[in-house]
Design a protein around this nucleic acid. Structure first.
Length: 280
DNA sequence: AACTTCATCAACCGCCTTACT
DNA sequence: GAGTAAGGCGGTTGATGAAGT
């Protein structure tokens, strides 16, 4: 079935908005709100489609928009959040009051990427920080009982995303090689759609959960996590875990071995689970 | 001064998700 | 549960102005 177009294109204006159009949109929304974007342009007397009106309001006309250059602090926050969340611009924007996802996306592509490359020339993680889950999925399907291991820190080998994942059997694991290990029964899960599972009673992993995990990670003292631990394994029974694995895995894989393990430790602790640590 | 290249950013496009019937 | 409409998101485009030749 062919999807209906989002709006009737014929006779509708495209391109930059005029001050007059802006004024009409602002006045209408101030008076009636924007409960129905599709109906709004017709009711307001604008020759635009609803999507265009929505975008104009969200990205430019909203009264709480912060205009002007990004501060160094804001830029650092974006870099941090991008490392943690990837290209989830709306999620990043939610943590930067007054900034829009579009604006942040533009700043990332025009300034921050260059800044990072200057600071870390040749850093493969800047080129691509997201894990290619489809590739991981393929690997795991060929050997469902295998463990997923990031070996790049130790072998020096790099794939397109700068990390190497390969399913290995438990016998192949040695403490000097492993930075993070995720175990589980992948056989019946579709990794590429990120439908994984933790315990049934695992708390909901919303934005607050992750910020708490990450902030507790930064402040974890040696007494919270064994500072001398060099090789531990967290057994994670997967059941339902949507979107959560990606930021966790990204963080873990971009960190040092100890930081990575500390992260998982904090994740478990924050979730009210006793981390199951075992020597490998 | 004329032309080209580069940088910026508003806006669009198409896909996905969610809500509703 | 299926179909549809609308909202939302991320990737991309293209107009514009600045900088370089």
């Amino acid at each position: 079935m062919v999807r209906a177009p989002c709006c009737e294109k014929t006779g509708l204006k495209k391109g930059p908005w005029t001050p007059e159009e802006d004024q009409i949109l602002i006045s209408y929304i101030q008076q009636y709100g924007h409960s129905n974007w599709r109906a709004l342009p017709k009711q307001a007397g604008l020759l635009r489609c609803g999507k265009s009106c929505r975008l104009r309001w969200i990205n430019y006309l909203r009264p709480d928009i912060k205009r002007g250059n990004f501060t160094r602090e804001e830029e650092d926050t974006i870099i941090q959040l991008h490392e943690m969340l990837g290209s989830r611009w709306s999620a990043i924007a939610a943590r930067l009051p007054g900034r829009t996802d579009n604006e942040i996306k533009n700043v990332w592509h025009t300034h921050l990427k260059k800044r990072l490359l200057k600071q870390n020339p040749g850093d493969p993680k800047i080129k691509r920080r997201s894990i290619d889950m489809s590739r991981v999925d393929k690997q795991l399907k060929t050997e469902p009982d295998a463990k997923l291991v990031n070996l790049s820190n130790h072998t020096g080998s790099e794939s397109s995303d700068g990390l190497e994942y390969r399913p290995i059997s438990p016998q192949q694991c040695s403490s000097s090689e492993i930075s993070s290990v995720i175990t589980g029964d992948y056989a019946n899960n579709n990794m590429s759609s990120m439908k994984l599972e933790l315990w049934d009673d695992f708390p909901e992993m919303d934005e607050n959960f992750w910020s708490e995990v990450l902030s507790s990670d930064q402040s974890t003292s040696a007494s919270d996590f064994p500072a001398t631990a060099e090789a531990v394994q967290f057994h994670i029974p997967f059941s339902t875990l949507e979107n959560a694995m990606e930021p966790a895995a990204q963080y873990a894989c971009n960190s040092s071995m100890h930081d990575s393990m500390e992260f998982w430790y904090n994740l478990f602790t924050r979730a009210g689970k006793s981390p199951e640590l075992s020597e490998i």
